[in-house]
Amino acid sequence: MQRLSTRGNDTRWLNATARLAARGRPTSRPNPAVGCLIVKDGTVVGRGWTRAGGRPHAEAAALEEAGDLAAGAIAYVTLEPCAHVSPRGPACADLLREAGVARVVVGSPDPDPRTAGEGVARLRDAGIKVDILPTPEVGDSLAGYLTRARLSRPFVTLKLAVSLDGQIATASGESQWITGEVARAHVHSRRAMHDAILVGGGTWRVDQPRLDVRLAGLEHQSPRRVLLSRGIAPDGVTVINTPSQIERLDEVQYLYVEGGAQTAGSFLAEDLVDRIELYRAPILIGKGRSALGDIGLESLADAHGRWTLTERRQLGSDSFEAYSRSRPEEN
């Protein structure tokens, strides 16, 4: 499919659509969280995102809101409109065609073989102009779905909460709490955006974490609990024996890894971490317990060029930074 040069307005609308898509995470599973905006004469007349359980799709919701105003409008959608009819709903490419939109701007082709290229072809066959305009924001909004399609595993975020000197606990093992209330609330909001949350066996036995979401109104979005261990699975918990077995976590697009140090190190050693979310408290611990175990690094030169800072903010007295993994095949 054709890739067109970036256009300022199209990029702005697509990035807004990507932010809208976030409302669908993670409840849209097993479908990707997609966003759609219907724009006419510079005004949004319809907006939609993938709803809980995957239906309705973003395009269907946006077209329903737009009604007759969709005729002659531009549809911005983060993922190529689906081309397959499901018992749960019609193909979005057909809905857009029937609504009479004049143009569709797509942020990402769909790797699903039932649609790949067919959604765009069906629209073009109907005389609708279609532009493919990838943006980093759209890629980020579909990261779990695209990682599943490309690597057959979830998109993995590693969360670390450390002191200024990189410790996660005192020498005696005391770790609650390194960060303050604002940062901890932010962690719970991040948990709510993930399909599953994973800790190692040591953390499970020592800390007995609840691994849920404790923010008012979001309790129902507590992620599936996963334990990296060779022991027997506790009630309500999925056990995997090695980091590579995350590919077995059905319908998990976004995996949140919280620790401890050996678990974090093992995921990094196998290059399975796509994003690091680092919370840093303004305290010094000195002799304590490091945030990471062995990550398999043999040369300092190999440590450079792997991580790119993508986000930074202040959370009360603590700082937050997010880093994305830079992989040569993605450049």
Score class of each variant (00 low, 15 high):
Arg205Val: 00
Pro209His: 02
Arg210Glu: 01
Arg210Phe: 02
Arg210Leu: 07
Asp212Phe: 01
Asp212Val: 03
Asp212Trp: 00
Asp212Asn: 05
Asp212Thr: 04
Asp212Glu: 02
Val213Gln: 11
Arg214Met: 02
Arg214Glu: 05
Ala216Ile: 07
Ala216Asp: 06
Gly217Ile: 05
Leu218Ile: 03
Glu219Phe: 03
Glu219Ser: 14
Glu219Pro: 13
Glu219Gly: 09
His220Cys: 04
His220Trp: 11
Gln221Leu: 15
Gln221Gly: 13
Ser222Tyr: 09
Ser222Gly: 15
Pro223His: 15
Arg225Asn: 09
Arg225Tyr: 05
Val226Tyr: 07
Leu227Lys: 11
Leu228Lys: 02
Ser229Arg: 10
Ser229Tyr: 02
Arg230Met: 07
Ile232Lys: 13
Pro234Gln: 06
Asp235Tyr: 14
Asp235Phe: 12
Val237Met: 13
Ile240Tyr: 13
Thr242Asp: 14
Pro243Thr: 06
Ser244Thr: 08
Ser244Arg: 13
Gln245His: 14
Gln245Cys: 08
Ile246Pro: 08
Arg248Ile: 00
Leu249Cys: 06
Gln253Phe: 07
Tyr254Val: 04
Tyr256Arg: 06
Gly259Ala: 02
Gly260Trp: 01
Ala261Thr: 00
Ala261Arg: 02
Gln262Val: 07
Thr263Leu: 00
Thr263Ile: 07
Gly265Arg: 07
Gly265Trp: 00
Phe267Met: 00
